[in-house]
């Protein structure tokens, strides 16, 4: 599944990043790397963007960005 499908309050592990070029760099620099744990903290009132906890910082990503991150939900 991709990150945008992760429900609020759930945590997942990053499996891969599909974004390219600058966008990929940006994601990687935020610490989104294979193996990184990401938690869906909350969605904004209009549903998009969603705030994720990534390596202890809460960072909002738009849906288009979350769609390009492959994750596996933690049990």
């Amino acid at each position: 599944m991709t990150l945008n499908m992760l429900k609020a309050g759930r945590t997942a592990t990053v499996k891969g990043i599909y974004s390219k070029d600058t966008e990929r760099r940006r994601m990687v620099d935020l610490g989104i790397l294979p193996g990184t744990l990401i938690e869906n903290v909350m969605a904004s009132p209009l549903g998009d963007p969603v705030a994720y906890r990534i390596r202890s910082a809460v960072i909002a990503l738009r849906r288009e960005q979350a769609e390009l991150i492959e994750v596996e939900e933690e049990g």
Binding site: R26, L30, A51, V58, I59, A60, L61, R62, E64, Q65
Partner: peptide
Amino acid sequence: EASSFSLELPP
């Protein structure tokens, strides 16, 4: 189109 961004919500 709107380009992507990331916004930190500080504590």
